[in-house]
Write a protein that binds this DNA or RNA. Structure first.
Length: 588
RNA sequence: GAGAGAUUAGCUCAUCUGGAUAGAGCGACGGCCUCCGAAGCCGUAGGUAGGCGGUUCGAAUCCGCUAUCUCUCACCA
């Protein structure tokens, strides 16, 4: 597809240059690369459209006139030989490309590539680190983490599909005052209970104590001070405090890992704040020596951000202790030493845009050349119909609860359709449908924008949803299964020239564009590109096979040929769903 | 006070680097299961793209002003 559009550009550039000579203009030659093309709004118009507006001024004639003459020249001079045909339509030159070879090569490529269909090499040789999730060890994951995780997993897979070597890393926020609060509450109210003794997930168990702390603090003004005191004990390495801290962190992380496993989230490496929070200090001291930073009279160390139009910022307190940025400076350098990435992507909420702007600037000020390749994949908040999620008001949507709810609903749906016997393991299927619904819902929106999470809508399985895509996949697999059951003698022969219908041509073009969509997704750092592509593909195929029998035609060759197309659609769907972490289902 | 972002159909979202009549889903209304699974398919209704101005042959898209909303500007993380 790409190559044929390039050939057309060359042909049109030549035609324009001939027209230029005809008109006796002495402007420089028109370069093929400067010719823009687009996809016509309606397929009947053609496969490509070349707008002639840009040449109106130089040629001193109206775009429709140019289009008309260019169309003639292409015909007269046979510039389009083998490329297809061109026809002027108003200011556009609409082009139809030679279908047969495209159909043939597309279907053959998909078949040959199989599960790697769509993968490219644009990022080959690139080492890209992707940080996402960033849980706290004082509470379970919530809806916000789910969006973060969905984006992190998806963008990692997209980058890998573009040829990069990707390393997914987590940052575990396991220290700080909030951690001490749940520890304090545990000391006061737990009476030695454990997640095992209570039979609940470790992250939930610890989170409950975090809630208890706040209840306690309401009645006891001294609570904050007590937590601060515990924090000091932790920092001074008090053995009992450390022991409790380790125990509770272990519980939380074990619980969170269960949720990760459930949602298909994994990491090559986890970094712990408790290991990295001190590392920034020496880097800041080096920067102080090199003159990148300066010291105030009280001993605190600052950076002047005037170069990027911002104010001044503290990097070390007067007592020499680190802050959030300081810690992230250390973590970034530590990680680059760990694994020398070419690029690093931070999947972090948009509320931290300022933080990353500052962080990246400081790192480049410290002379780290790779700092310019750091990227903040900023995503918007997930709001509820009632408004923002607020932990104080208890409106935070717990990740496990949400998944359970979705899973139960999917199960009901299976039962109500009477498919429990067809589906195999009903619980596993329901779980996968739930994940499909959730991940598609979270990824179909543009990452940078805030989004509204409507529980009712996310539970819906009809229309523009993950389960719809899964359903189309299952239906296709069902057809392929029937084909396999056919006697080999009745299967016919693949003859691409039989794919003459307009929908068939649209499907082939769409399948062929899958690699371009992956490229677009990584360039824009936006998995929604993949989600939208899959929906369009599924919808188009759905209409197609509704109106056209795939393997029930009298013509055995037509069956075999349509089956190849169906197979290619299935492969594109399957590979695309993998990129957005929506499970592909053979039956549902 | 300053910075960043948002505003598109009743609701949730698309609209690729400015291009042909702004598209989907949900909801509403109306059709389609002796036919490869109806979680489906087809159709109807619904938009002055927050508002005003500008640039351009052409603006949802770029620029300015303005309204409303969100986030940020901590020696919190």
């Amino acid at each position: 597809m790409t190559t044929s559009s390039d050939s057309w550009r060359t042909a049109i550039a030549s035609a324009l240059n001939i027209l230029k000579t005809e008109k006796g203009l002495d402007a420089p030659d028109i370069d093929a690369a400067s010719i823009v093309f687009e996809i016509p709004p309606k397929p009947e118009l053609g496969d490509y459209a070349f707008p002639m507006f840009p040449f109106a001024k130089a040629f001193r004639s109206a775009p429709p006139a140019i289009a008309a003459r260019v169309g003639e020249i292409l015909g007269e001079k046979a510039l389009a030989t083998g490329l297809g045909s061109a026809v002027a339509a108003g200011p556009y030159l609409n082009v139809r490309i030679e279908k047969l070879s495209v159909v043939e090569t597309t279907l053959r490529s998909v078949k040959a590539a199989g599960n790697s269909w769509g993968r490219g090499t644009a990022l080959a040789g690139q080492k890209i680190m992707v940080e996402f999730s960033g849980p706290n060890t004082n509470k379970p994951l919530h809806l916000g983490h789910l969006r973060n995780d969905a984006l992190g997993v998806s963008i990692s897979r997209v980058l890998a599909a573009a040829g990069a070597e990707v390393r997914k890393v987590n940052i575990i926020n396991n220290r700080g005052i909030h951690i001490c609060k749940s520890m304090l509450a545990y000391m006061k109210f737990a009476n030695g209970t454990t997640p095992e003794s209570e039979g609940i997930k470790g992250d939930r168990f610890v989170g409950n104590f975090y809630v208890k702390f706040h209840e306690y603090a309401q009645k006891n003004p001294g609570a904050e001070a007590e937590a601060q005191e515990l924090m000091r004990k932790w920092e001074s390495g008090d053995p009992e405090t450390i022991e409790l801290w380790k125990k509770m962190n272990g519980w939380t992380i074990a619980g969170i890992n269960v949720t990760y496993k459930r949602t298909g989230v994994s990491f090559e490496k986890a970094y712990f704040e408790s290991d990295t929070y001190l590392k920034g200090r020496e880097e800041v001291m080096k920067g102080l020596e090199s003159g990148a930073f300066y010291r105030e009279e009280d001993g605190s160390v600052w950076v002047d951000l005037a170069e990027i139009g911002l104010d001044k910022k503290v990097l070390l307190r007067k007592d020499g202790t680190s802050l959030y940025v300081t810690q992230d400076i250390g973590t970034a350098i530590y990680r680059h030493n760990d694994w020398a990435f070419n690029r690093m992507v931070y999947v972090v909420a948009s509320e931290q845009q300022y933080h990353f702007k500052v962080l990246f600037h400081i790192l480049s000020k410290l002379g780290y050349e790779w700092a310019k390749n750091l990227y903040h994949l900023s995503y918007g908040m997930v709001n509820l119909p009632e408004g923002k999620m607020k932990s104080r008001e208890g409106t935070v949507v717990d990740a496990d609860d949400l998944l359970d709810g979705l899973r139960d609903l999917a199960k009901e749906e299976i039962l109500s359709k009477g498919r429990e016997l067809d589906v195999g393991d009903i619980d596993e299927t329901a779980e996968k449908i739930a994940l499909g619904a959730l991940h598609y819902y979270l990824l179909q929106a543009t990452p940078t924008k805030d989004m509204l999470f409507n529980p009712k809508e996310s539970l819906s399985f009809t229309g523009d949803t993950g389960p719809y895509l899964q359903y189309m996949g299952a239906r296709i697999v069902s057809i392929l299964r029937k084909w396999d059951e056919l006697e080999p003698g009745k299967r016919g022969r693949f003859r691409p020239e039989l794919l003459t219908g307009p929908e068939e041509w649209e499907l082939v073009k769409m399948v062929a564009s899958f690699p371009d969509k992956i490229a677009e997704a990584y360039r824009e750092m936006n998995p929604a590109v993949i989600a939208a592509f899959l929906y369009d593909l599924a919808k188009l195929f759905s209409r197609y096979y509704h109106d056209n029998p795939i393997i029930n035609n009298l013509d055995a060759d037509l069956n075999a040929t349509r089956l190849e197309l169906t197979q290619a659609v299935m492969q594109s769907l399957k590979n695309g769903l993998e990129l957005i972490n929506v499970p592909f289902l053979e039956k549902m």
